[in-house]
Simulated assay, not measured.
Amino acid sequence: MLAVATAMEDEAGRRYRQMAERMRLQGQQTLAALFIFLAGIEERHAAQLRRRSEHMIGRLPETAAVAWELPEKFEEEEGRSYLLTPYTALAIAVRNEDRAFAFFAYLASHATTPAIRQLAEELAKDELEHAALLRRERRRAWRKERPRDFVEPVEVHSFLARVAAIETFSAKAHRELSTKLGREGHPFEATLFEKIAGDEERCAADAVEQGAAAPVRPIEGVRPETIRDGLRLLEYAFDQYAEIAERANDEAVLSAAQEFQRRALERLAYAQGAIGDPLVGR
């Protein structure tokens, strides 16, 4: 556990320094400073784990190979002019802090000794705090980079119309992804996204039943081709509803946005939990 934990901290520190440099080159000095700050925290944690390893087992941990989950072509473009936007950088960081939290929480819940449980709980708490900080920054970045078709709903019926459009598109896209995964020999993931599509269809129906403005204008978007794409589509819905809830002035809009935000978060957590952390399996 110490070996994997130390490797995860080392990897996070390295990635945060890479992101800081990308942000600096793009003139995002505040965000660059945030990533430098986080890199320093991760590096101090790695040093603390090495000292703890010497104290607990009498030697330094033999760090394992641990890789962050990164967008396609991120590695290939690392030394080139790949444009990493602030939102994308923060989304990657949040996803990997969540992954680290899931790993340590898994260890804490399955620990057979108090020492392992205590250490895993401490590390899980640290990762949760990092993720919370990054989510706040991601919200700000999303507001600056949000889609051009995003229209702030001023009353509940227009918000419900947007929910119906998002959920209808997502359900169709996730069902198509489910069919594709089934053909490719991934029955577990195919069933997962089929269930998610069913819940999205129920959300769309609920929005219409609650009085969505008609006609509901369908949204356009890229159909997910991979499991990661499917998860990103779930994140998109959550981000839309969270943004509206955060800015709503109308009590009815706020209440509805919070409810659909909750349902979107449940789907996202269910998918991430069911697919599993690559470090610990399903």
Rank of each mutant, 00 (worst) to 15 (best):
Ala67Trp: 06
Gly58Cys: 01
Glu72Cys: 04
Leu60Tyr: 13
Glu77Pro: 01
Leu70Ala: 03
Tyr82Gln: 04
Thr63Ile: 09
Gly58Pro: 05
Tyr82Met: 03
Leu84Met: 05
Leu70His: 06
Pro61Cys: 04
Leu70Trp: 08
Leu70Gly: 08
Glu76Val: 10
Leu83Cys: 00
Glu62Asp: 11
Ala67Leu: 12
Lys73Ile: 06
Glu76Gln: 07
Thr85Ser: 11
Ala64Phe: 11
Glu72Gly: 05
Arg80Trp: 01
Tyr82Glu: 05
Glu69Lys: 09
Trp68Pro: 04
Pro86Cys: 01
Glu75Arg: 13
Pro71Gly: 00
Leu83Asp: 11
Phe74Ile: 08
Glu62Thr: 08
Leu60Asp: 15
Gly79Asn: 10
His55Gly: 02
Trp68Asp: 12
Glu75Thr: 13
Lys73Cys: 09
Trp68Phe: 12
His55Met: 14
Arg80Asn: 13
Tyr82Cys: 03
Trp68Ala: 07
Phe74Ser: 10
Glu77His: 02
Glu54His: 06
Gly79Phe: 07
Gly79Leu: 11
Val66Lys: 07
Ala65Glu: 14
Lys73Ala: 08
Ala64Ile: 03
Lys73Glu: 13
Leu70Asp: 09
Glu76Lys: 03
Met56Gln: 09
Met56Lys: 01
Leu60Glu: 15
Glu76Trp: 00
Arg59Gly: 00
Met56Leu: 13
Glu76Met: 05
Pro61Glu: 09
Glu69Thr: 15
Thr85Glu: 00
Thr63Ser: 05
Leu83Phe: 12
Leu83Lys: 06
Arg80Thr: 14
Phe74Pro: 11
Gly58Trp: 06
Ala65Leu: 12
Leu84Asp: 02
Gly58Ile: 01
Glu78Ala: 11
Arg59Lys: 13
Glu54Leu: 10
Glu76Arg: 02
Val66Leu: 04
Lys73Tyr: 02
Gly58Arg: 02
Thr63Leu: 09
Glu76Cys: 03
Glu78Asn: 01
Glu62Lys: 11
Arg80His: 12
Glu76Gly: 14
His55Glu: 13
Ala67Asp: 15
Arg80Tyr: 11
Leu83Glu: 00
Arg59Glu: 12
Ala67Phe: 11
Ala65Phe: 08
Pro71Thr: 04
Glu62Met: 07
Arg80Gly: 14
Gly79His: 10
Glu62Tyr: 01
Leu70Val: 14
Ile57Ala: 07
Ser81Phe: 13
Ile57Gly: 00
Ala64Gly: 06
Lys73Thr: 15
Lys73Phe: 04
Ala65Ile: 15
Tyr82Thr: 02
Leu83Thr: 15
Glu77Tyr: 02
Gly79Arg: 08
Gly58Met: 07
Arg59Trp: 01
Gly79Tyr: 05
Gly58Lys: 04
Glu62Trp: 09
